[in-house]
Write a protein that binds this DNA or RNA. Sequence first.
RNA 1: GUUCCCCUAGUUCAACGGAUAGAACAAGCCCCUCCUAAGGGCUAGAUGUGGGUUCGAUUCCCGCGGGGAACACCA
Length: 576
Amino acid sequence: MTKENLEKLLNDAAKKCGISESFSVVFSNMPVCDFQCNSCFSVGKILKINPFDLAEKIVEKIKSNECFEFAVARPGFININLTEKGVEKLAREIFEVKYPKQSEHIFIDYGGPNLGKAMHIGHMRSFNIGEALKRLYRKLGYKVTSDIFFGDWGLPLGLIMAMLEKEGTLDKYISGQLPLTIEVMNRAYPQANKLKELDSSFNARAQTLTLAFQNKTQPYYDFWKKLREVSVAEVKKVCKLLNADFDLWKGESDANDYIDTVVKIFKEKGLARQSEGALVVDVAEPGEQIPIPKKTEDEVQRYENPMPPLIIQKSNGGDLYATSDIATIYYRNKLYNPDIIQYLTDVRQSQRFVQIFRACKKSGISPSTQQLWHTAFGTMNGKDGKAFKTRSGGNVSLLELFEMVQDKVEEKLKQNNVDFDAGLKRKIANSAIKFADLSNVVEKDYIFDIDKFTSFEGKTGPYILYTACRIKSILSKTQQFDLNFNFYSKEQKNVVINLARLQQSYKSAFYERGLSSICHALFELTRAFSTFYNYEKILAEDDKGKRDIKLSLCKLTLKEIISACDTLAIEIPDKM
RNA sequence: GUUCCCCUAGUUCAACGGAUAGAACAAGCCCCUCCUAAGGGCUAGAUGUGGGUUCGAUUCCCGCGGGGAACACCA
């Protein structure tokens, strides 16, 4: 890579001056240069040399280079510009880039839909970010296994059963007299959820039914299987819309067989203790969970640096999700032995994952060499800055959101007199949603704005697709041409620089475990291309050499846009 | 109460401790006899507050103000 070449040049020059400190290079945001080196300040400080003098000394030692022009600027910057030869070489590197194979195996857990509950917009980020990270890791040469990890073993399914039982239809659904559909579940769950608050005997019945299928008591266990089947089919529909796919479609229920084993491990290692009737594991480290003296008798006990113990068994003997999570880590290690396990959830679950990870490390369920990552993403808020809710206080379902965006896309397509089919509509809607979501920095909350998802101008997914389609259109209208990277105009060079920045963004994205830098670089690239497109005639260029150069730029840019979109799980249509 | 996160143009978002703080939307002005105007060009507009560290702070540290989240049997 050019950046590395530059750093080598500078470091070699430094060595000739007897300096062993390292110099690094970054893309410049200044209009005067392509790259810059800021290291003269820090190195100058260590060596007690004026940074400006140091910069001059280094640059003097670099014998003239055909690819780069060096200049020293005011307090001590080294500014570097690419020559035409340098641009050509950079373009060639970009065109031929290959990522070496990595030895690590990353296991990534995202999606996490709960059976029985319709997916809402809160699930969207996990799917979008997780899917894109999975693809990014693969692109960068890692072995990756993805698991959707259903919440399929809990109370919601017991609630649905209890609701149907109360209606008197449960037997008919069990026997198959009435067909079980997702609509039945989507209706029954919210009703049951409300009812359990009002009717404690109903709640108790739901608990009993939950325990029944968990103990594999018939006919409830078979009915649970049926509920799972119907839900999974529905989830797969959403996955198709979001262009997400998983290697494993497991869930809490698969961890069930290992729960006793892991509880035993905690007990045998003396890590578990009884507290208020529940079985807990202490995970606080020194300086955490220090009780704050109560001011009055009946005040709730508060703690300084709170880190409560992790409950692995309820006082009624029931299991918790945390126990399933630990059991899941246990069997994932047994079956897949990954080097890294990554989870993607809302930031509100952060403390829970700290607890789970610590419990796994303490007990050795996760070996000390294994990395456990929790990538916490910000909450999607409404315009009031609070967690997003519809006017009626409910959640917007993911399918509804997708429909709304597709309707808007259809409107726009009709307005532009474009021939379209369902596939094109879906692709454009998908790009709008993905790009709007992934552009945000992962860990920050963001405002869920429906207008943003249905606006197709400016920094949006459809803009990226539009640019790609324009390039495709040009390339489809041309015959064979000779690949030629001897770019000569300012606009062409700017496209190449942005191509390099896009490739650089994959590395940043890996370290940040987020996609916003890729989205940003992709947008800047398409913007640079659009400027070039507006300034220079491509197909109408008479000079064959120049036309080859311009077409080569089209080809290279399209290749990289396709590659980036593929990483983000955005599909590009041929026309729009 | 404790802990963590956030505060940047009118709005929504960017900016490994680097130079003149970038975009998008909204506003105003231009560009379709020309490869897709879902486009391009131009104009105007911002770092909550008070200290500190630094050659240099939106970025790091400490106050203050404002907002959000978590704080044992939900996930």
